[in-house]
Design a protein around this nucleic acid. Structure first.
Lengths: 224, 224
DNA sequence: ACTGCTATTTGATTTCGATCAATAAATGGT
DNA sequence: ACCATTTATTGATCGAAATCAAATAGCAGT
């Protein structure tokens, strides 16, 4: 199911760096490729965790549903990134989020039990994994900070700055409403903030293309 | 510096469960006891991470400072809980939060380098640690969920329900303003929400003692 | 190009919580 | 017990963002 491209792709995943060939094979043999269509669900909040995932192509969203059906996007996962690997170590793990494909996507599914078995023989991978999880924790703390002391304009400004490389340009790969949810803003408010940023000449907008015109000003908004 | 009470205390810390005597000694020998006075700082945002901590007595708060001096309490750490252990595994770790004692407190400081050295010989402790970090991640995701889809009343209601055991009673161990910050609410709003909950007969309040009168109603507010 | 659908923007209004200001209550030290 | 200081409550006002409602733009399939 996994072809040569997938294997060399996996070899370059940070999490698999420290593995010797036999360990790598052990993990790969318990892995499968999933091809998802746009909007296809990967797992739902509450499902038992039996594996973790690595995005090969496309975009995958992780989100939570409140009981009134409102969806809050927690993360947009891009190719090369893994997710749900932090859950394997819980007693009787259930997904705290749901997941679906934002567009047609390929996802590699790694068996959790096999991976944990392999871990016992690879302290260095343990440490790598601990490092990855540390980073995730740091990111989440940052996120909480953003949500509690920052307002919508801060968050959106920071997001634009983070996404735009030195070329001062980003192309939104997902609908604005998805991004809005990711930043915990309503779509209407998202649109209004963009308008604000544009009318203050910090950015220019053409559909899903955003150009940073005045980085200093944007950094002021983001309070960086 | 650590007496017999501290040692048996440490023996019962989940993180140290899987250690054999030699591993335990190795860790304990690189540990020190810190006695903190109320409001004394333990570390500040940006400091280098050289150890992690376990609260022995008292309460310790973790908080972030925004540039306008506003403080947001991220966590209130109680005896038996460890913190900052997730940071050891980062490249060149710096504390993403500041920390100080909420009252006179004793904290055991464990040397990070020694602990990591010990980890290499204890895959089971690695897995324990991975489990602990998983739980923390899950808690943080929950927190983000609360902050983005829930309002202040939800958060406070959920907090009361979580803290109160089956006896339907809690005694706040910290000033209300600290709790307010922990829940990302202003003190004034905190007070008003409590008043609301009281006037709807969901709870009764006497100073820092809160009694749950109508659990069903409180659960409705908390949307549990 | 036309149709139907979805995404986005804009406007009007409301709501929740922050802020400013002041008072009241509680706490600790002498 | 008294005073000083901190902590908590209450009132009034303001502002950011949510919500409700509608119009417009963009896009896919025919």
């Amino acid at each position: 199911m996994l072809d040569q491209n997938h294997l060399s792709f996996l070899r370059n995943i940070h999490l698999f760096n420290g593995l010797d060939d036999s360990q790598f094979d052990q993990v790969v043999n318990s892995s499968r490729l999933l091809s998802l269509h746009k909007d296809e669900s990967l797992f739902s909040q509450g499902d038992d965790v039996k594996c973790f995932y690595i995005v090969y192509s496309g975009l995958v969203k992780l989100f939570r549903l409140s009981m009134d059906g409102q969806e809050k996007v927690i993360e947009i996962v891009t190719p090369g990134q893994s997710f749900a690997e932090a859950l394997m170590f819980l007693e009787r793990p259930n997904f705290p989020v749901s997941s679906s494909a934002l567009n047609d996507a390929e996802v590699i599914m790694v068996d959790a039990a096999q991976f944990i078995r392999m871990l016992s023989s690879s302290p260095s991978t343990c440490l790598t994994l601990l490092g990855e999880m540390s980073q995730r924790i740091r990111g989440l703390v940052q996120e909480i900070d953003n949500l509690s002391v920052q307002n919508g304009r801060h968050r959106l400004s920071a997001y634009i700055l983070e996404q735009a490389g030195i070329d001062n340009h980003i192309k939104l790969a997902v609908p604005k409403a998805v991004l809005a949810s990711r930043l915990s803003i309503q779509p209407e408010t998202f649109s209004r903030i963009l308008k604000q940023l544009r009318s203050s000449s910090a950015i220019s907008i053409d559909g899903s293309n955003i150009e940073i015109l005045d980085r200093d000003q944007l950094e002021d908004y983001a309070m960086i």
